[in-house]
């Protein structure tokens, strides 16, 4: 089992190396470099050359890649030319804010999703399921910027209950975000819940159709005991990995939500960095987000390994 986990860990790290490669190559392959982006229209002649020499952009790509990744391993993500600050300093609080947003949405969304998914699965094709599934389709398919906009329209513009736009500075203590963060959390949790509940529903339906559940009924196991002992452990196990994948995938949606709400997280920073053509910063953000994604998947793997007797008892 430990071997299995180590295997996953190595694979995860390998993936991260690939990610860094992809990001680096993409930025390299795009026309222009850090200096043309930095200098903008003044990027001509000696000024450009000086810049390139000063920041070492003229050195071979491989050297720069090695430097960049080795630095990243030690927590040094390089310098942002545009902002003239170490990137780790810029990202720090932004990452915190995004994680707070994502974590709160997860903590609220996942339990609700599991609960609703089980209900929908057990009452398959009957009214509770039809309501839940229909609403889930809406929540899942409507783009994040649309749902966010509607949330602002209703709760901020019409009802005036909550602020629609975050005005708190990025590095303010978390308490000050409390009222700002509610709508973004709802927007994010909505999509997440919808996706996950659909998976839980399918999984419950599959398990309910299995031989061992039929057998449990024929052994005279009372309904709810059967649900809790025989159905749920087996239905929820395979969803752990799917949940992690989904959450990670929704990181993309966070970017949009942050922009709509003007929430000072990593997502909005990304948009700013891209608008400023601050490529070093974009590279770093991509790497950090990928690391979060891979970490999340690893966590799910670990959880599955511990919870699944089939994997846990695997020898060698």
């Amino acid at each position: 089992m430990i071997k299995l986990f180590l295997q996953r860990l190595v694979l995860g790290l390998l993936t991260l190396v690939f990610v860094s490669g992809i990001v680096f190559v993409t930025v390299e392959a795009l026309p222009g470099d850090a200096c043309t982006a930095y200098l903008g229209r003044m990027a001509t002649g000696t000024r450009l050359e000086n810049c390139r020499r000063d920041f070492g952009v003229d050195r071979p790509a491989l050297t720069r890649y090695a430097e960049w990744t080795l630095g990243a391993l030690q927590g040094d993500l390089g310098m942002s030319l545009k902002r003239n600050k170490p990137i780790s300093d810029i990202i720090g609080t932004r990452l915190r804010n995004t994680l707070v947003l994502g974590l709160s949405a997860t903590l609220i969304g996942v339990p609700i999703a599991i609960f609703l998914g089980i209900i929908a699965g057990l009452w398959r094709d009957r009214p509770p399921d039809m309501w839940i599934s229909t609403i889930a389709i809406f929540a899942m398919t409507i783009p994040e910027f649309v749902s966010s906009t509607l949330l602002i329209l209703v709760f901020s513009a019409w009802l005036g209950w909550l602020p629609g736009i975050v005005t708190t500075p990025p590095n303010a203590p978390l308490v000050e975000f409390l009222s700002d963060i509610i709508l973004p959390i709802i927007a994010l949790a909505l999509v997440m819940t919808a996706h996950i509940l659909r998976m839980v529903r399918t999984s419950v339906i599959d398990v309910m159709a299995s031989d061992y559940v039929q057998m449990a009924r024929l052994k005279g196991v009372p309904y709810w005991r059967m649900i809790f002992r025989h159905v749920l452990p087996n239905a929820l196990l395979p969803t752990i990995n799917l949940v992690a994948l989904t959450i990670a995938w929704l990181l993309g949606g966070v970017v949009v939500i942050e922009v709509v709400f003007n929430y000072p997280g990593l997502g909005r920073l990304t948009i700013d960095a891209i608008s400023d053509r601050d490529l070093a910063l974009v590279q770093a953000i991509a790497l950090v987000l990928a690391a979060v994604y891979i970490g999340l998947n690893l966590f799910a793997d670990l959880l599955t390994l511990v919870a699944n007797p089939r994997l846990r008892t695997m020898r060698n």
């Binding site: 031989d211 061992y212 039929q214 057998m215 025989h230 087996n234 196990l237 007797p309 089939r310």
Partner: peptide
Amino acid sequence: NAGQSLTPTM
């Protein structure tokens, strides 16, 4: 099929 009729998580 006893293999499929025993609950795998118990």
